[in-house]
């Protein structure tokens, strides 16, 4: 679809830019920021708050890129928060008991545990032919339950963690926190893979039309298993980021995080039907979610209304996005020769 739009080039470069979904989302974001800055009396957009945003929502951003891949192949994974908790808890416990003495190893082990969870989920979905939402609903409970079991319902507290591990989330490089570097690097990788690799194109192919992809010789099961494994690994990485940031591993941590992540993707123009969306959109989507979540209490709205307002803003952002897309599609059709 993007290829077609490029060949048409109706309305010149400027028209193309204005029609882009990403630009429309950017405009929504700017509007949102102006309102927040005005309502919060100028306290929101300061370098300090932006650093806090990047640190607090780095794990959400990381999860969003994993979810992007899953949604692109037409799947969904609502078990990521459980995978995050399980990997984060297991790696923290290994650190607590002295098996892991290097902070880098904690991140690596947590990622590998997540990879294992994702691989199993991918196998069940691809080989067992279980609907993704059903399979991951099941794993959401199984993995969360296992988190309670391995932790014996206890928490790992900051004094039982490596000082270097908790310090990691506070340090920065070139003025950008390490946690933000993680999601920026991941963003670039996902962007490049989706745009310029065979694997990236196969992901879009499976999501847009699985039958056609199969006929053209793509091993659909392999793509599915790979994507769910990558998503699991990303959730595992997010688990280590979470425990490092909050210096505490709690068995019920990040419960419900999958909803913010799915919302971020949808705001970013990723279709739940698969095959549509990109990394730039997902990045803008998660930034929007982060800004909304962080600023709600700053704009002076009663706590009881904050949840409802969050929902309204999400719907508005999606609505603008859908309208722009519909307009785009129409333009594309207009340009077609009959």
């Amino acid at each position: 679809m993007t290829v077609k739009q490029k060949t048409l080039k109706k309305g010149g470069k400027l028209g193309e830019v204005l029609r882009s979904r990403e630009i429309s989302l950017l405009l929504v974001m700017v509007l949102l920021c102006v309102v927040i800055q005005w309502r919060s009396g100028g306290t929101f957009f300061t370098p300090g708050v932006i650093t806090q945003l990047a640190q607090n929502y780095a794990y959400t951003a990381v999860l969003t890129f994993g979810m992007l891949l899953v949604l692109l192949i037409g799947g969904i994974d609502i078990s990521i928060a459980s995978t995050l908790a399980f990997s984060g808890m297991a790696s923290s416990m290994l650190m607590q008991h002295g098996f892991l003495t290097n902070p880098f190893m904690v991140f690596l082990v947590s990622t590998l545990i997540g990879l294992g969870c994702g691989l199993i989920i991918g196998l069940v979905i691809a080989k067992g032919k279980v609907l993704p939402i059903i399979a991951t609903l099941g794993f959401q409970y199984i993995v969360r339950g296992l988190t309670y079991v391995i932790s014996d319902s206890k928490w790992v507290s900051s004094d039982e963690m490596l000082p270097a591990f908790t310090q990691f989330s506070l340090d920065s490089f070139l003025g950008i926190p390490y946690l933000a570097w993680i999601f920026l690097v991941l963003f670039v990788i996902v962007l490049l893979v989706l745009k310029w690799t065979e694997f990236g194109r196969q992901i879009y192919a499976v999501g847009s039309n699985a039958e056609a992809a199969k006929i053209s010789g793509i091993n659909i099961d392999r793509i599915k298993i790979l994507v769910y494994s990558i998503n699991g690994a990303i959730a595992g990485l997010a688990g280590a980021m979470f425990t490092s940031k909050y210096a505490s591993a709690q068995s019920n941590m990040a419960t419900g995080a999958e909803m913010d992540v799915i919302a971020a993707c949808v705001i970013g123009g990723v279709s739940l039907n698969g095959g549509q969306g990109n990394a730039v959109g997902a990045l803008l989507g998660v930034i929007t979610i982060a800004i909304i979540s962080k600023s709600l209490s700053l704009v002076g709205i009663d706590a009881f209304w904050q949840q409802a307002l969050k929902g309204v803003i999400i719907l508005l952002a999606v609505a603008v996005n859908v309208l722009v897309q519909r307009n785009n599609d129409r333009e594309v059709l207009k340009g077609r020769e009959i």
Partner: peptide, 9 residues
Amino acid sequence: SQKSTDETQ
């Protein structure tokens, strides 16, 4: 943890 941290900040 996340929301409490946001609110504190």
